[in-house]
Design a protein around this nucleic acid. Structure first.
Length: 351
DNA sequence: GACGTAACGGTTGAC
DNA sequence: GAGTCAACCGTTACG
């Protein structure tokens, strides 16, 4: 378990297979790209594979977010009780209706959108298994099926098809504030632009987010790392307000000591480039890199165990918070002066 | 050389 | 609680 995480790519950069790059690096990739730096140069500078740079930039261009998607889990069910209910109604109304017609009606009636409409085969399965013979109108719920009304409690859950609340993959969106969605974003992964670089840098919703963060202990905030990343990304605010969980997002950055040192600011890109994201002078390449500024954490907290760490706000949390602050004093903040100022406000308000 | 992308091995979380 | 599955990840190699 000791330092079994982390590999070194061909560029000498450290990565953890299967895990997203630290958000700091992701952010920096986008920042550099916006500065006109070529992807290949970004790749070399940050020692991230060009494929990854390409992916992140493509995703950013597409979604406006630098954040990784929600890892793991299953796709949200599309055959919600409500949908089943509607299918049943359609079938009852027209026993000869085809599955594809039902599908069209679901779309047309606004029951589903193109992102969560069940497939024809799914509809057929519903008709076969859940509805059965339509000659028994009103006889739906032959099994333990919940009556339509019982479907309602599901809605908040399935609602995560809609990004204003949480992503379909379960990534709760920390805020609906400042989420300038372009129309109906039924995007599979809801990428709230509140997390976009623009907003991150603009910090338009930092205060709001920080307020939410401050109340994290009382709010049903996400337990997934991605979720907390979202929260953190909203403004990279102080970590003290989120016990332990903050550590998650920050951890991912700490894993990569180049992040603090390599993220002085966009404007200092050149120095960062010259020094290199993985300052070999200070850091031992390869796995040793992980024992950089975040070593205090790293030694005791493997890269994984996100949720476990989250769920266990046990001893060491406070220490981590302090260590984190000491070792990486808002590295992201330096990206923008305005960010610093806003964060000052955030920190004050959270104190 | 730069870039996009499929394949790959890996992690994660819902079921 | 373990296993399965399907999402995601970043790297690598190829065109």
């Amino acid at each position: 378990m000791d330092q079994t995480y982390g590999e070194v790519n061909q560029l000498g950069g450290v990565f953890v297979n299967g895990r997203p790059l630290p958000n700091a690096i992701r952010l920096r990739i986008v920042e550099l790209a916006q500065l006109g730096i070529r992807p290949c140069d970004i790749s070399r500078q940050l020692r991230v594979s060009h494929g990854c740079v390409s992916k992140i930039l493509a995703r950013y261009n597409e979604t406006g977010s630098i954040l990784p998607g929600a890892i793991g889990g299953s796709k949200p069910r599309v055959t919600t009780p409500t949908v089943v209910k509607h299918i049943r109604e359609y079938k009852n109304g027209d026993p000869g209706i085809f599955a594809w017609e039902i599908r069209d009606r679901l779309l047309g009636d606004g029951v589903c959108d193109k992102y969560n409409v069940p497939s024809v085969s799914s509809i057929s399965r519903i008709l076969r298994n859940k509805i059965g013979n339509v000659c028994h109108p009103g006889h739906y719920e032959t099994s333990k099926h919940h009556p339509p009304q019982s479907a309602l409690p599901y809605n908040p859950i399935y609602q995560y098809s809609y990004p204003n609340h949480m992503s379909p993959t379960g990534t709760k969106m920390g805020t609906a504030a400042g989420v300038p969605m372009t129309g109906h974003v039924g995007i599979h992964r809801a990428w709230p632009s509140a997390h976009s670089v623009t907003n991150i840098l603009g910090l338009r919703s930092i205060i709001e987010s920080s307020a939410s963060i401050g109340g994290a202990e009382a709010s049903p905030y996400p337990t997934k790392m991605e979720d907390w990343n979202n929260v953190n990304r909203t403004g990279f605010p102080s970590t003290q307000s989120i016990n332990g969980t903050e550590k998650q997002a920050i951890d991912s950055d700490l894993k990569y000591p180049q992040a603090p040192s390599g993220l002085p600011a966009v404007s200092s890109f050149v120095p960062a480039c010259s020094v290199g994201p993985y300052p070999s002078s200070n850091q031992v390449p390869s796995y040793g890199v992980y024992s950089g500024p975040g070593a205090g954490y790293m030694t005791g907290h493997p890269w994984q165990s996100q949720s476990s760490n989250l769920s266990h706000s046990g001893p060491g949390i406070a220490m981590h918070g302090g260590d984190i602050h000491a070792s990486m004093p808002f590295k992201h903040l330096s990206a923008r002066e305005g960010m610093q100022q806003s964060l000052h406000m955030v920190r004050r308000s959270s104190l």
